[in-house]
């Protein structure tokens, strides 16, 4: 669905995207992960023809975004973090205005989409009175109205409350499974991407660190945080016993294939270690980066 080849972009002297190659197959929920400034939004901007690349080619559905904008973007809907609307107009007028840049708006389709995002009671209110969650739903409606095949979501959960995030997540899954939409989802929150996507790309300072399936990242591995009186001795012993594969400098250990927290605790008690803390941990984006950077170094 999306093909990015050798794309570079600089703003002034700063490299925003550096020789990016990325493929997003049709029908996937594909996550783009990276800190603020990693190059995700610039990449999305280039995909939408809003930012001109210095080098490279971006294709959507086999059409070059810059050479054949109308065909390439004709099948795309997009949402940005904190979407902007004509606040002095109603939600319905906003939908009509945005969608008529793509083509004629069918009243029945509009009704269907407004119902899907749950704005049917408020669509004739001025957007000025909408909450952040409602604005985000309106943004989703305007993205869906032209019947896209690809939905690009740039940090769509920013500013949403937990309930809003949950609703948005369910809606994205529904759109992928029931409507068959390919979804490119950008976020700096690892757990969000982890919940939604089967495939992901990880970017850092404009470079693509990883692109592929989750399991290739080893994130499905269980990790523990360990604090005992004879830390170095315990770490060495646990690795030797095959219960932990390796320990990070912070005392985080990746569990072995058949190990769990109970088995590790049992081993420590048996070895008469005084346990300060032992708990399963979830890895965050920083850990993913560090693991990748380490992996690159090891491979280098």
């Amino acid at each position: 669905m999306i093909s990015i080849r050798g794309v570079c972009k600089k703003f002034g002297g700063r490299v925003a995207v550096d020789h990016l190659n990325l493929d997003v197959p049709r029908g996937q929920i594909f996550g783009m992960l990276g800190h603020n400034g990693a190059g995700k939004s610039t990449t999305i901007g280039m995909l939408l023809g809003q930012v001109y690349p210095d080098e490279g080619q971006l294709m959507i559905g086999g059409e070059d975004v810059f050479a054949n904008r109308s065909k390439a973007l004709g099948r795309v809907g997009a949402i940005f973090e904190s979407p902007s609307f004509y606040d002095y107009l109603s939600g319905a007028s906003n939908l009509r205005i945005f969608c008529e840049y793509s083509g004629p708006v069918d009243a029945k389709r509009m009704e269907e989409v407004v119902k899907l995002v749950g704005l049917e009671g408020r669509i004739h209110d001025r957007v000025r009175v909408y909450s952040h969650g409602m604005r985000q739903r309106l943004a989703l409606a305007q993205a869906l109205l032209p019947n896209p095949e690809l939905l690009i979501l740039d940090e769509p959960n920013d500013g949403l409350d937990p309930e809003g995030i949950h609703e948005m997540r369910n809606l994205i899954v529904k759109l992928n499974r029931e409507w068959g939409l390919t979804i490119l989802f950008s976020s700096h929150q690892l757990n969000e991407v982890q919940h939604l996507c089967t495939h992901l790309a990880v970017m850092r300072e404009g470079e693509l660190l990883f692109s592929g399936e989750w399991r290739q990242l080893g994130l499905d591995q269980a990790w523990i945080r360990l604090r005992v009186d004879r830390q170095a001795e315990a770490e060495k012993g646990l690795v030797g016993a095959g219960l932990v594969k390796s320990f990070s400098a912070e005392g985080h250990g990746m569990l072995g294939p058949d190990a769990d927290v109970a088995k590790v605790a049992e081993w420590l008690v048996h070895g008469r270690f005084r346990i300060g803390a032992i708990a399963p941990i979830e890895r965050d984006l920083e850990d993913v980066y560090l693991a990748m950077v380490r992996k690159e170094k090891d491979e280098g």
């Binding site: 939408l48 809003q50 795309v76 997009a78």
Partner: peptide, 18 residues
Amino acid sequence: EEGTMRMVLARPISRLRL
């Protein structure tokens, strides 16, 4: 300034036509 231009430019309309 208000950000609506980015929303518009995510549409298949050409900049010149706009």
